[in-house]
């Protein structure tokens, strides 16, 4: 008997006719499920076509909103800490409280992969070339929403990035951030 998860993963995809193979579609759904239920991501959706070129993506990709900010660039982190420090000094001297760094979560691209796959730089570059800087918001994309998306974009987000989700046969998923270009590491 098929479990609910199994039926979810292998459910036939929505009306959009794609050239993607069923295993690629089920892979995307498996990652989506993992993010939704194990990492509490929201606004998750599966993309089959590039919003830049409107051509089919190399494989279905997932986008979503994490509960906390996934990635803070080290320069942005320095800026945020300075800002938080100024705010702490501005507060009344008697008031307790340390540094309060507030960062809004950002929408992320997720690239679902299987561990046994082989990749090449060409394919990786192809994925990045088909992506926008920030994934589009769910719902019908109107010019207004696109513009709003641009305006709210973080000025520190200057290189494309995807979350590489790699799933093993035992359904363990590991996540790595993949930047397009030379991006210095976080000082954590």
């Amino acid at each position: 008997m098929a479990s609910p998860l199994r039926t979810f993963v292998s459910a036939p995809t929505a009306v959009t006719a794609t050239t993607h193979l069923p295993n690629e579609q089920s892979l995307a759904r498996q990652i989506l499920h993992n993010l939704q239920h194990q990492h509490y991501w929201t606004e998750l959706q599966i993309h089959t076509h590039s919003s830049l070129t409107h051509a089919p993506l190399p494989r279905p990709l997932v986008s979503g909103l994490p509960p906390q900010r996934l990635y803070v660039h080290p320069d942005e982190q320095v800026e945020l800490l300075k800002k938080a420090d100024r705010e702490r000094k501005a507060r009344a001297a008697g008031e307790a409280g340390g540094l309060q760094v507030k960062v809004e979560p950002e929408r992320e691209w997720i690239l679902p992969t299987r561990l046994k796959e082989k990749w090449t730089l060409r394919r990786l570059a192809g994925v990045f070339d088909a992506l926008t800087m920030v994934p589009p918001a769910p719902g019908p994309s109107t010019p207004e929403s696109m513009r709003e998306e641009d305006r709210s974009a973080n000025p520190w987000r200057t290189t494309k990035r995807v979350l590489l989700a790699t799933v093993d046969t035992d359904s363990t998923v590991v996540y790595y951030i993949l930047h397009d270009g030379v991006v210095k590491p976080r000082q954590n």
Binding site: L124, A125, L163, Y175, Y176, I177, V182, R186, N188
Partner: peptide
């Protein structure tokens, strides 16, 4: 030349 930087996502 294209380069890709990879960091752990801490998820």
């Amino acid at each position: 030349v294209r380069a890709f930087s990879i960091e752990w996502a801490a998820l």
